[in-house]
Structures are given as structure tokens and as C-alpha cells.
Nucleic acid binder design. Structure first.
Lengths: 241, 241
DNA sequence: TAAATAAATTGATCTATGTCAAGAAATACA
DNA sequence: TGTATTTCTTGACATAGATCAATTTATTTA
């Protein structure tokens, strides 16, 4: 848990390619480096986010973790799975909101204090814009998640996720099935059954890779928000148009 | 649908008291007035938010509407109920996200174009900060909503909402029961049954007012996020501490 | 590479909440 | 002020998905 040491160049390159530092000069990022703390976590480790804990902004340099809420009964809800290059900013949560982060892989986080972030927002309108975009994306994905949970049944939820992972993650399932089940708000058993139904439609998962018989079966589970990165998007072969 | 006319003073006062214009001089707001469009909608009217529609920012001067998503089967999900003084900014949604607004009361909205908002963010760091706060609050309430939908049963969901309305809206139910049911992701029948169970615990709704037998029954459905405005919050009588 | 551990599947059963239908209460309207 | 319309409540029943238990398959670890 110490300030950035000598891997300077590597870190600089990583940061400069993040959407969070869009339109921000390398020199400026370099000035920031001494203010960034590097924190390492091991798989299965967890920490609580609450009033007392550092309420700043975390950038995932490497690894993966899940942000969760647990109720009195012990039921767990996954709010978000955060991977390489993604940002989470507890400083923008309510002061009294409690959540926990559990690490799925060994993970390295960069930490920026609330004060640092606020100064940047104040002094640099590009950074302010980037923060706004980051929050807007959060809102978008929370709205999508709400929709998926509320309006889709288990098969549709899984199909939707696979359609999204297929275009945005090159057909590779980014998380395990049981974590996915939990993320989609169903049990592992239900996911298994949903997957069998999708199998009948020509959609399969083999060795963590998503396979389609003709390559278009997942289109019926796609929507315009998750589909923007699909190479069919907007073309005459895209059923969404 | 025309630029702000002569009710200048009234509008100015309204705007200057909004969190969105925190730390912004009245003079500056005044310069903004000509850029604001006033739009009136009638109860039951609706409009779709999508790529083609004005993707700016709306301020609710007066009235109430619900932001909803509908799936192919016609099931409706209420994303948010927006009331007096509240802001919604479709410009921060994904370009392809489709939602609809349906007006619950006759409503007057102020509209700021995306360009105007972006200029303000660029030129005025206080405004940028206010936009960030607004988005952060959105994220917070979406996370809370997800939690309520996913981890609470019908009785707990209703109890949670009543606890919140009780402290934040002075015990007055801000919406009808059937709209509330829909907002809480349950049917009107389920809400009715949940309310009966709460009745056994001393929690009732009479003439749209929330009543508790001893005045503390709802505490067991409260949490620290919705409870911040409660006058017991943090005191020795507050069960959350 | 085998043993140990964890993850995924399958079947049987349970349950919370949805659906449908009828009636009561509240609200709007004339 | 009474009638019409909408909203709310109640009961009977249906169902998606949860839970529980037993294997099977995959992944670690020694």
C-alpha cells in the first residue's frame, strides 16, 4: 500500500489509455502519479465499503472483484463485477451506503483520494467530463440490470448476458457460471436449466467460450444498448433495425 | 414550448434553490434563462426517450411523471418517479437506450439542450460538481432499488418504501397504491396483502397518510441511507446505531 | 497423476408471488 | 348528491424459480 514506485512508464501508459483520462495530457497524469496509492489484494480477500473506509476512487489495474450487498438472511446480490481498467468510486455513493468488495482474482488497485478527485474535477474540465461519463455509464448499466432482473425470465436473462459477452468480450465468458448465476439473480441450478433450453436453440458454452450454431441465434436476445459493438449492428443483417 | 417569458422572477427563485445550481450566482442563472425551454404536458400524456428525441436535461418545475421500460410481453417496469424539483438527464443515457415518460399529473418541464449543459460543465466547475452529485444520487437510488427488488420480499419492500416516505415526505404517500405496487415490482394484489401483514405490526395507511401505532414500527424497515433525514437518526433511540 | 476439493447438473419437491375473477371502497363526474 | 368509473381488496388457483439432495464433471493441489 504505497505510492507508485518505478513501474512509472507502464502505469502511465495504462492510465493514459483509460476513458477516465481522455483528453488529459501525459504530463498531467505524471504529476498525479505520486498521489496514487497502489493496493494489492489476494483472491478471496474482501473489504467493506462504508463511512469509515477510504471513500475515494479505485481504478482496477489488474484483476477482478465483485461489489456485493448482503441482507440479514445472508442472501447476496452482486451489484457489479469490476475487471481490468474499470473504475469504481465509493466517494460517489451515499455516505451511509454499505457494500462489500470480494476479490475473484489477485488484484491490483490504484486509489485516488476524494480530495484528489475533487481537485481534478475543479481544475480540469476534461477530467470533470470523464467523471461524468463514467457515472453516466454506471447509471446506464444499473438501469439495464434492473430491466434484466425485472422484465426477463431466467432464459432471457442468460441469453441477454451471453449476447452481450459475445460481442463485448469476443465470445469468452468473463466469469464462472456460478458467479454468473448470482450476477443474473438466479441460482446455479436455474442457470443450468436455462442453459439447456438455450442449447435447444443452438446456443452453447464450451470451455468458457460461447458457441452458436449459425452465429445468429443470440441476436434474438440482443438489444441496441449491448449491441452497439456488434459488427452486424445497424446492418441489414441486424434484426434490431 | 417556448423560451422562458415573464415569470422570470418565479423561475429564477425556483432554479436558484435547486441542488443543480448550488454555488451558482443568480446572475449566471439569469443568463441561462433564454436558453431554457418550458414544456407543458398533460396528465396521461407520454413521450418516448430515444436516439431521435431531445437528449438533453429536464428539470421538473411542477408535476410528476414516471420513467418506464416495457418489454415485448407488455410488462412494465418503473425506473423512477420524478417529482417537483427533480432532474432527469437522458443526455447521460446510452444513445440507444429507449425508455418512456408518462405523466401522472399535469406537468411543466424546463429543458436544457445537451450543448448548453456541456458548455456549463466546461465553463463552470460548480455546475460540473452539481451534475456529478446529481448523477451520483441517481446511482445511489438505482443501487438501492436493485437491492430492494432483489433481496427483500413484498412485505419488506413495502415497509422499506413506507419508512422512506415517512421521513422524507412527512408521512404522506406521494403516489397511488397501484403505482406504488408497480414501482416496487409487485402486483396491486400483493401490495394489498403485504399491507395487511404490516397492519398486524401496527403500520397502516389511512387517507394516503402513513400511520404507526407507537411511531417506531417502521424503524425495523429503515436503513442508514433512507434514514439520514429521520429525526431519530443517530440518536440513542435509533435502532440503526 | 491421483486424490481432494469445488463447480455444475439433474430430479423431486416447495413456496412466494403472479393471475384471474368477483366484490367493496374510494374518487370523479354530471 | 347520486351515479359512474376507477382503485383496492379478497379468495381460489397456477407457476417460475428456489431449495434440497444426489451425482457427475472439472479444477486444484499434493
Amino acid at each position: 500500500m504505497n505510492a507508485i514506485p518505478n513501474n512509472k512508464l507502464q502505469y502511465l501508459k495504462f492510465l493514459s489509455e483509460l476513458p477516465l483520462f481522455n483528453d488529459i495530457q501525459d504530463q498531467e497524469i505524471e504529476l498525479l502519479l505520486p498521489l496514487i496509492k497502489v493496493i494489492n489484494y489476494q483472491k478471496r480477500e474482501m473489504f467493506f465499503i462504508n463511512v469509515d473506509k477510504r471513500p475515494g476512487l479505485y481504478i482496477t489495474f489488474d484483476g477482478q472483484f465483485k461489489l456485493t450487498k448482503v441482507n440479514e438472511r445472508g442472501d447476496e446480490m452482486i451489484i457489479r463485477v469490476v475487471s481490468n481498467g474499470e473504475v469504481i468510486s465509493p466517494m460517489h455513493f451515499s455516505q451511509y451506503y454499505e457494500a462489500s468488495a470480494e476479490f475473484i482474482k489477485d488484484t491490483t488497485l490504484f486509489y485516488l483520494s476524494e480530495y484528489t478527485v475533487n481537485q481534478l474535477v475543479k481544475d480540469n474540465s476534461s477530467f470533470a467530463k470523464n467523471i461524468i461519463n463514467m457515472l453516466a455509464e454506471n447509471i446506464q448499466s444499473l438501469m439495464m440490470a434492473a430491466e434484466v432482473w425485472r422484465l426477463k425470465n431466467t432464459k432471457e436473462r442468460l441469453g441477454w448476458f451471453l449476447a452481450s459477452a459475445n460481442t463485448n468480450n469476443l465470445g469468452k465468458l468473463p466469469i464462472s457460471k456460478s458467479l454468473l448465476a448470482s450476477y443474473l439473480g438466479m441460482t446455479a441450478e436455474s442457470l443450468s436449466r436455462a442453459l439447456k433450453k438455450l442449447g435447444d436453440e443452438g446456443i452453447k458454452i464450451e470451455h468458457k467460450m460461447i458457441k452458436q450454431e449459425t452465429g445468429k441465434e443470440l441476436c434474438s436476445y440482443c438489444d441496441r444498448v449491448i449491441g452497439v459493438n456488434c459488427n452486424l449492428f445497424g446492418s441489414k443483417n441486424c434484426p434490431l433495425f
